[in-house]
Design a protein around this nucleic acid. Structure first.
Length: 217
DNA sequence: GACCAGGCACATC
DNA sequence: GATGTGCATGGT
């Protein structure tokens, strides 16, 4: 019963969100390296600030794997300053780049060829790459069929009484993975739509007027 | 001026 | 295993 409720909710919510917001064309980045950089920079940070940091990297012509692996951590930190936690994030980016260099000789195609589970486990060994960042990279940079759980996703599901607010990452991810078509495009679009919805929620009221999901309740 | 934003690692209990 | 804290900027 519970399972059917979840499946129905996920399906209906998706339809409504898609009708309301349309295709989101995620990730908001063009290249694999840009997506990976964005995934790290957005940790606990408003995307607007991330965009500003990425723009600085572009303007300084540093947004390529080779440039980023050669740049000094200090210079990198300076460029990504607008995204906050800049020294920390510069180091995390370096950790990720060095991992890719060490394990895959800097070749994204080799990473791409790796099975989802193996690559995920590897990414999680990189200091500074947690569950959400790893899944964002897997789904959006490499087109692997995994689901990204973030603050918006947890809020979305708990506010609609589908899960407790403090549900852990893995069980919430399992709900999406087991109740949706195992399809990269669906996972991509659904998470993007949840973020779009999250940005339109009122802070004070969980389900204010104008929320596209209000009619479902 | 307080609070929040698409986390993560680490210390401590 | 749960909870607290540092990391730091920019927008509301």
């Amino acid at each position: 019963m519970r399972k059917n409720n979840l499946r129905l909710f996920l399906k209906q919510a998706y339809c409504r969100l898609y009708q309301c917001f349309g295709p989101q064309h995620w990730w908001p980045g063009e290249t694999q390296i840009e997506i990976m950089v964005g995934a790290v920079l957005t940790q606990n940070t408003n995307w607007r600030n991330v965009e500003s940091a990425i723009l600085q990297l572009k303007q300084d012509q540093q947004l390529s794997f080779r440039k980023l692996i050669d740049i000094s951590p200090e210079k990198l930190a300076e460029l990504i300053k607008p995204s906050g936690f800049f020294r920390l994030k510069a180091q995390r980016l370096k950790n990720l780049l060095h991992f890719i260099e060490r394990e895959y000789q800097g070749q994204f195609k080799k990473m791409q060829a790796q099975p989802l589970g193996d690559l995920r486990n590897q990414l999680l060994t990189v200091k500074g790459i947690g569950l959400e960042t790893a899944d964002s990279i897997l789904l959006y940079a490499f087109g692997k069929p995994t689901f990204v759980i973030d603050a918006y996703t947890r809020r979305f599901m708990s506010r609609h009484q589908m899960v407790p607010a403090d549900i852990a990452y893995a069980p919430l991810q399992k709900i999406f993975l087991s109740h949706l078509n195992p399809d990269v495009q669906t996972f991509n679009e659904y998470h993007a739509l949840i973020v779009q919805l999250g940005k339109s929620y009122c802070r004070s009221k969980p389900l204010c007027e104008g929320c596209p999901l209000a009619p479902m309740l």
